[in-house]
């Protein structure tokens, strides 16, 4: 269970940490705790899996990764674990989820990749499909980014 201090820490570290020599000291001051206590608590949150990753969120488009399709695949239900696990193991796959099939969208495996060009994505997708032996798939390219932010937890408006 998370205590109020943990939630207060999360409210701080889910924002930008300051680009100064001792960023955690500055945050600890704001929270009224010692730097050592903060570091221990963050490590605890990491170990327990509350923090999935500590580091930079990059704008992949700014890095030259301009193509980020959602590859949707139709996989027989009995093969979903095998195919999902296999695709998840590939380095270029950033997200892989099983989702419910809808009548207008009869696909159940949703895979995200990021690449520099659309052509590269088609090559990657074909390779992936061949690897797992799935013939029915589509690439939904993002044509425009309307919003991209980080989630903020434990705020008043929750």
């Amino acid at each position: 269970m998370l205590c109020e201090l943990d939630k207060a820490i999360i409210r701080e570290i889910q924002e930008d940490i300051p680009l100064v020599s001792q960023p955690f000291l500055e945050i600890a001051h704001r929270l009224g705790i010692s730097e050592e206590q903060l570091l221990q608590r963050i490590k605890f949150l990491q170990e327990k899996g509350y923090i999935r990753r500590f580091g930079a969120a990059l704008r992949h488009r700014e890095m030259g990764l301009k193509a980020n399709p959602m590859i949707i695949m139709r996989v027989p239900e009995e093969r979903i674990d095998e195919v999902g696990t296999k695709l998840a193991s590939l380095d270029r796959v950033t997200h892989c989820y099983q989702r419910p099939m809808l009548p207008f969208l009869p696909y159940n495996l949703f895979v995200m990749i990021h690449a520099e060009t659309k052509e590269e994505c088609f090559v990657l997708a074909r390779e992936m499909a061949e690897l797992v032996g799935v013939g029915d798939y589509r690439l939904l390219f993002s044509e425009k980014e309307l919003k991209k932010t980080s989630m903020r937890y434990f705020l008043e408006e929750d």
């Binding site: 999360i10 889910q14 930008d16 509350y50 999935r52 990753r53 969120a57 990059l58 704008r59 980080s150």
Partner: peptide, 25 residues
């Protein structure tokens, strides 16, 4: 620090901090 500040200004770095596990929370 100078390099990171520049990458932040250029927009390559969107945020530097913790990425939480929403399910776990």
């Amino acid at each position: 620090l100078n390099r990171l500040k520049k990458l932040k200004e250029q927009g390559v770095i969107r945020r530097l901090g913790a990425i939480m596990d929403s399910r776990k929370l």
